[in-house]
Design a protein around this nucleic acid. Structure first.
Lengths: 107, 107
DNA sequence: GTCATATATTCCTGTCAAGGAATATATGAT
DNA sequence: ATCATATATTCCTTGACAGGAATATATGAC
């Protein structure tokens, strides 16, 4: 997870990922659509690939990048692991204490 | 989202967040449990707070930090926005093309 | 083969962020 | 008011990383 977050925590890379959400794109496409320079795009894609977020697929002399569903499934599980715990605490002591705290804060 | 990912993309902060998943903790608790130095913990918590991931709640002379559910709900929606699109493409042309690509790759 | 196109890599430089140490602030106890 | 404890902030230094420019590599066209 850490590599994933670190990779997404950079503006350019996040833009690339959100572009790839629309579907696979060649490097040149990304360069053109996002107005970034080709070497930086290649470097960002390398980082994203190392984090497992994207995969490549050579197509003639183009390299088509696409998101890897597994990475997103793992992210989803990670996020869910938090919300599950909160849901479990909602009807127990934790809930009571949290309400107390909120009232206190409002005063 | 960018600030969130950037905040989580640092080992120490990720550890703090995963500790807070177990429930609210005072700064000293975090320091002790994670074996980090107090000033760094405070600084990390500041970054996490600015990203909206944690909230504070003063309790005597302690400051109890806890995760903010809204931030995780937003993350969840972000991740879902990817998986939804893929699901939508599964029974359309995209699916067909992707299968073609996979076969090609295996050869 | 040569050439052109698409992409990756290298090298350099500047910037930013993390850690360490010291210090400041806040709050409760006496 | 003084002191102790808990936490935050500042300053400094160093390392990592992003961008730019140039160059290398791969692949297809001819």
């Amino acid at each position: 997870m850490e590599a994933v977050f670190s990779a997404l925590g950079e503006p350019g890379r996040l833009r690339i990922v959100e572009l790839l959400r629309l579907g696979p794109h060649a490097v040149g496409d990304i360069v053109e659509r996002l107005g970034m320079r080709q070497p930086q795009v290649s470097k960002h894609l390398k980082v994203l690939a190392q984090a497992g977020l994207v995969k490549v697929q050579p197509r003639a002399r183009h390299r088509i990048y696409h998101l890897d569903a597994d990475a997103f499934e793992q992210m989803r599980e990670w996020v869910d692991s938090f919300e599950e715990l909160w849901a479990a605490r909602l009807d127990s002591l934790g809930r009571y204490l949290e309400e107390l705290d909120e009232e206190e804060r409002d005063q």
